[in-house]
Write a protein that binds this DNA or RNA. Structure first.
Length: 468
RNA sequence: GUGGCUGUAGUGUAUUCCGGCAGCAUGUGGGACUGUGGAUCCUUUGGACCGGGUUCAAAUCCCGGCAGCCGCC
């Protein structure tokens, strides 16, 4: 993959990520296609929406069907018949969120503060917080067990478990209960087989409720994993086990702690493959980045990550998240594309793009669609106050003969709100499809407006139009 | 025609025997949801078939209607 910038407006930039399956104009939003399909929508829909790239999920594809079967279809592209770019998540986040975070209702940005995890993890995290290479040989002793008591309202009686060791994450599959071990090498192998255009390093996403000691321990472990991912990836590229041109993003962690975020950004940005493979495939990048003009057969600096993703806990508020971006982005060279994992409300997109983020993936538009919320363009009444959304089930829509946004032009907005509310209340399948189309129309349309505005040097005006 | 059983939120039920603040589920109305969760959570609303009697007090006991179900003629 390759990345080039074509216009800038402040720190915001318009660029293009080129992949084997086409280019992605940035800033871009990736709809999430967890199991290879965007829920409720078809590939024709995604093309009509002008989606440029989809985010699929290693965790689900690995556990539900298995990467071998996907590979036998010719990878994600052949399997799903989506012939534009794909990105895959590493599976690390889900190992925690599906077995951990969701039990407490804690997302990437904490808004509530339930009881923290039990003391066992804390004590061990503290005891192991100072190691480096020393523990790699006996990772078994470096076990962090995260045990979650069932919440007061939970019907499920058994606490969930996620065990983190130097080796990787061991957890119970939420689908069939079996024990699964995910490691950096395994995540890379799975993602190579799935064959997405852009893949992510395997990382540990800590909770916003984790203390600094544990966040630091997890971050440094994630850095060691990142090195393993980078090495495994270049080995696979060289041996042909990974698709040509497949790009690997490193992930910056460090929670909401400034020194940790800076440490992480420097580590990930500066990381270079150590596997010593000097092939033609590797030469170009190393020479270009470091301005080396060595002759054939010589390699000055081995390649690092193709892009940088910002992940993990983004703090306890929007301000915390913006601070994380302000600490991290200046340490990422302009030449690398920057992805912000899991973020994607209208406000977040504006704040992040203006700080130099290039790509987003987020379940928000499609998930809230299915639970009855429709996004509002400013011309249809969207404001930060209403979070640019309305609820389709509000009683006031019951008798409405008007569409949500008569200027929208999407399939959903050809129908009256009264009809849409009826579909939702009746749990008609058509509702999920129409609502998902509408919400993606709004978000992908916003990205298009943003690219256009940056090119014209009027991002601030556009932001004012939307945010007031 | 006759005997028995049953009538409790929009729906399904608990409490009835032995009278003492009518509970639960679902639905309705409002809210939450950020590397997926058609899930889930919070909150609000809403009820003793009708009429009479006994009692300090009736969903509960008694009488009469009405309705439904089952059996018999």
């Amino acid at each position: 993959m390759d990345f080039s910038i074509t216009a800038k407006d402040g720190s915001a930039r318009v660029g293009s990520i080129s992949t084997a399956h086409g280019d992605i104009q940035t800033p871009a939003f990736m709809p999430v296609a967890t199991a290879g399909a965007v829920k409720a929508l078809g590939m024709d829909d995604m093309e009509a929406l002008h989606a440029q790239i989809l985010m699929a999920n290693t965790f689900h594809l690995h556990l539900k069907i298995g990467e071998q079967l996907v590979g036998a279809h010719g990878g994600l592209h052949g399997f799903s018949s989506w012939h534009r770019p794909f990105m895959t998540d590493s599976g690390g986040f889900q190992a925690f969120s599906l077995g951990f975070g969701m039990e407490h209702g804690v997302g990437k940005i904490a808004s509530i503060f339930p009881d923290e995890v039990t003391g066992e993890r804390r004590e061990q995290g503290k005891a192991g917080g100072d190691e480096g290479e020393a523990h790699r040989a006996d990772g078994g002793d470096q076990t962090h067990t995260i045990v979650l008591p069932p919440g007061p309202q939970r019907k499920r009686p058994e606490p969930k478990l996620a065990r983190v060791t130097e080796e990787g994450v061991r957890f119970r599959s939420p689908f069939d209960g079996r024990w699964v071990l995910l490691t950096p090498e395994e995540s890379m192998r799975i993602q190579h087989t799935l064959g997405a255009d852009l893949i992510l390093a395997f990382d540990e996403c800590t909770s916003p409720l984790s203390d600094k000691d544990y966040t630091a321990t997890a971050m440094r472990r994630t850095h060691r994993w990142a090195q393993q991912c980078l090495d495994a990836h270049h080995q696979a590229l060289a041996s042909g086990l990974a698709p040509d041109g497949q790009g690997l993003y490193g992930i910056v962690q460090g929670g909401a702690y400034e020194d940790l975020r800076r440490e992480s950004a420097k580590a990930i940005v500066g990381m270079r493959t150590q596997n010593g493979i000097a092939t033609d495939a590797l030469k170009g990048k190393g020479m270009k980045e470091e301005g080396c003009s060595g002759g054939a057969g010589t390699m000055c600096v081995p390649p690092g990550f193709d892009g940088i993703a910002i992940g993990g806990s983004l703090g306890k508020s929007k301000q915390d998240m913006l601070a994380v971006l302000d600490w991290t982005i200046p340490l990422v060279p302009d030449e690398l594309p920057r992805h912000l994992l899991g973020i994607g409300t209208v406000e977040d997109i504006f704040w992040s793009v203006s700080r130099g983020i290039d790509t987003f993936d987020c379940v928000m538009p499609t998930r809230i669609a299915r639970s009855g919320h429709l996004l509002l363009h400013p011309r249809a009444g969207g404001t930060p106050r209403n979070k640019f959304r309305t609820s389709v089930k509000l009683a006031r829509w019951k008798a409405s003969t008007q569409p949500l946004d008569s200027h929208c032009g999407c399939q959903c907005c050809r129908h009256s709100m009264g009809f849409l509310r009826h579909l939702f209340m009746s749990k008609e399948l058509l509702y999920y499809r129409l609502a998902s189309i509408h919400n993606l129309t709004v978000i992908l349309g916003l990205m298009s407006e943003i690219r256009d505005a940056i090119s014209r040097g009027r991002l601030l005006e556009l932001k004012t139009e939307w945010m007031g």
